[in-house]
Amino acid sequence: MAHGWGIHLKESPDWPLFAAFMCIVLFLSGIIAGVYCWRTGDKQPRVAIGSWFTAVQAMGMTAVFLWKS
Rank of each mutant, 00 (worst) to 15 (best):
D14K: 06
I32W: 00
F18Q: 05
A20W: 04
Q57G: 15
R46M: 15
P45E: 03
I24W: 10
S29W: 01
D14V: 07
W67D: 02
H3T: 13
R46L: 06
Q44W: 09
H3I: 10
P45M: 02
G34I: 01
L17M: 13
R46T: 05
Y36E: 13
A55L: 15
V35E: 03
H3F: 12
V56D: 07
A33N: 02
L17C: 07
L66D: 00
M61Q: 02
A63Q: 05
M22P: 01
T62P: 00
W67H: 03
T54P: 01
T62L: 12
W15E: 15
A48S: 04
F27H: 10
G50Q: 02
Q44L: 14
Q44T: 07
V56G: 04
A2K: 11
G60A: 04
A19M: 07
G6S: 06
A2E: 14
I24N: 12
I7T: 09
T54E: 01
Q57V: 12
G50V: 02
E11W: 05
A2L: 10
G30E: 08
W67S: 04
W67Q: 05
G60I: 01
M22Q: 08
G30A: 14
D14A: 12
A19Q: 11
W15H: 11
A20S: 08
P16D: 15
C23R: 14
W52F: 15
R46A: 15
G50Y: 01
V56L: 14
W38M: 09
I7N: 06
G60K: 01
E11G: 14
F18E: 06
K43L: 13
S29Y: 00
A63K: 01
I7G: 01
H8M: 10
L17V: 10
H8A: 08
D14E: 10
M61G: 13
R46Q: 12
L17P: 03
W52R: 09
K68A: 03
W67F: 08
D42S: 05
L28I: 14
C37H: 07
I31E: 11
Q44R: 09
W15V: 13
Q44K: 12
H3Y: 09
